[in-house]
């Protein structure tokens, strides 16, 4: 494994600045080690230690008190045969694409639109961010009212002549997951927008001006000039989106609790139910390990490739 490209070989093609750069990066001063190791130690202690405990618990049966009973791979075998787990897994795959895709597209569009010096953009930005500061309990209540029989969604359908589509959105097993997804995207968009806004601040406006002078239209400028500059932010947002898709919990819990009859269950809600409603901590830990493995699968492959591509560009 080669993390640091050996400066001696100077294999990277044609970058005249390389000697200077490696002088900056090569020698690692002690204080920099301090910068890195203090946060790392804190995280190792408060996250990795308990996480290893959870990994170990996934091979046991444990009700929160007393001695955990080792059961080998029994929890994982049970997962394979568990119909609720299969539903949750499939829902979660849909969720990663639906929730992730829509919130990134929406967040990016809003960030680009609101990154301009126009009137009221500050007001718009604040309004779109505001849902994040309202407590989850009343947010869930709001969405239950929105989807209720006789609620705004059904009334709007009636109004535009689509009355036959009216239904109890959250009580219908076919629509519950989609209905929750809309609410989750609605909440997530503001968050993605904030990160993209911060990323857009790092873009060099002179490049876009130059492209404009060259006759590129807004669409071309965005994709050819702005997007490449957002590469680092995109990586970050990709990781965040995958993590959040796999960990989405609150909004589902307050709107449907995975119901009706587990049809809107996600891995995280099912895990929570097993861990805290039923106190099956061994089984819940096994679900958590699956979530972890999925996240690794999605992220590490992508992000690691990204990071390697950047590696020579220190």
């Amino acid at each position: 494994m080669s993390t640091s490209a050996p400066p001696a070989t100077a294999a990277a093609p044609g970058e005249g600045r390389r000697p200077r750069r490696s002088r900056l990066g090569r020698r690692v001063p002690p204080v920099v080690w301090f910068f890195l190791l203090v946060p790392l130690a804190v995280e190792l202690f408060w996250v990795f230690w308990p996480a290893l405990n959870s990994f170990w618990l996934s091979t046991t049966t444990w009700g929160g008190v007393g001695v955990a009973e080792p059961v080998g791979t029994a929890n994982y075998e049970r997962l394979l045969a568990d119909p609720i787990f299969r539903t949750a897994l499939w829902n979660n795959v849909l969720w990663v694409f639906g929730f992730g895709g829509l919130s990134v597209v929406g967040g990016l569009a809003l960030a680009v639109a609101l990154n301009q010096p126009r009137r009221f953009v500050g007001v718009y930005r604040t309004v779109i961010f505001l849902p994040m500061v309202i407590s989850m309990a009343v947010t869930g209540l709001f969405w239950r009212i929105v989807y209720a029989p006789g609620g705004p969604v059904n009334n709007t359908l009636e109004l535009v002549g689509l009355g036959h589509l009216q239904q109890q959105w959250l009580a219908n097993p076919d629509t519950a997951l989609g209905a929750v997804l809309v609410a989750a995207v609605w909440r997530q968009v503001g968050y993605i927008m904030v990160l993209y806004l911060a990323g857009l601040k790092g873009c060099d406006p002179s490049l876009e001006e130059a492209a404009a002078v060259d006759g590129a239209n807004a669409w071309q400028r965005f994709w050819r000039v702005v997007m490449p500059q957002l590469a680092g932010v995109n990586t970050v947002i990709f990781a965040i989106t995958v993590i959040d898709s796999l960990r989405t919990f609150d909004i589902v819990w307050v709107m449907t609790r995975g119901g009706p009859f587990n049809q809107s269950q996600l891995l995280s809600t099912y895990m929570f139910e097993q861990a805290f409603s039923y106190v099956n901590l061994g089984y819940a830990s096994a679900i958590a390990v699956v979530i972890f493995a999925l996240a690794i699968l999605f992220i590490i492959t992508y992000v690691a490739r990204q990071a390697r591509a950047e590696e020579d560009d220190l």
Binding site: L44, F45, W49, N53, W56, G66, A68, L281
Partner: peptide, 18 residues
């Protein structure tokens, strides 16, 4: 230090009785 944490875990901080 990572190894130390690992061995500490083996003794178990949860699930090992009260």
């Amino acid at each position: 230090s990572a190894g130390l944490a690992g061995s500490a875990v083996l003794t178990g901080c949860v699930g090992a009785g009260a």
